[in-house]
Simulated scan of single mutants.
Amino acid sequence: MIKLKTVLVNELTFKNTLSMIEQYSIKDFLFKWVGEPPEGIDDYLPLEYTETVFAKMEAKQETDLRLFGDELFRYATITEDNQIVIGVLDSNEELTHRIISLDEVLAR
């Protein structure tokens, strides 16, 4: 299992908008990252683009994708430095951000 670097939100600068290419890139990455489910990413992990606070591909409310044991996937986004970041709720329902490095992407 890949360990992702956990960072504080004040260490990140998120984009205010994501281009269509960035949105599709996030979805494509997530599709590959979760093991290319046969039903496709839209059925396995339905996402919607939102710009509340910052731009992100957010899991719909009915989504219950658990990562790393008990962490609940909430959204994925891209920073101004073009890093992919995943937001998850931990077991205490605190929002945690994890940066996915290029090495971790290539290891998949």
Rank of each mutant, 00 (worst) to 15 (best):
M1S: 08
I2H: 14
I2E: 13
V7H: 05
V7D: 04
L8P: 05
T13W: 04
T13N: 14
F14D: 02
K15F: 03
S19T: 13
M20K: 14
I21Y: 12
E22F: 08
Q23E: 10
Q23Y: 01
Q23L: 03
Y24F: 10
Y24M: 12
Y24E: 08
S25A: 14
S25W: 05
K27N: 09
F29P: 01
F29T: 01
F29G: 00
K32P: 00
G35C: 04
P37M: 07
P37E: 11
P38C: 00
D42V: 10
L45W: 07
L47E: 01
V53T: 09
F54V: 01
A59D: 07
K60Y: 07
K60A: 03
Q61V: 10
E62H: 15
L65S: 05
R66E: 08
L67W: 03
F68S: 07
G69M: 06
L72E: 03
L72H: 09
T77I: 02
T77W: 02
D81A: 11
D81C: 04
D81P: 03
N82A: 05
G87L: 02
G87D: 06
S91I: 08
N92L: 10
E93W: 12
I99M: 06
S101A: 06
D103V: 04
E104P: 04
L106P: 04
A107Q: 13
R108V: 07
R108N: 06
R108T: 07
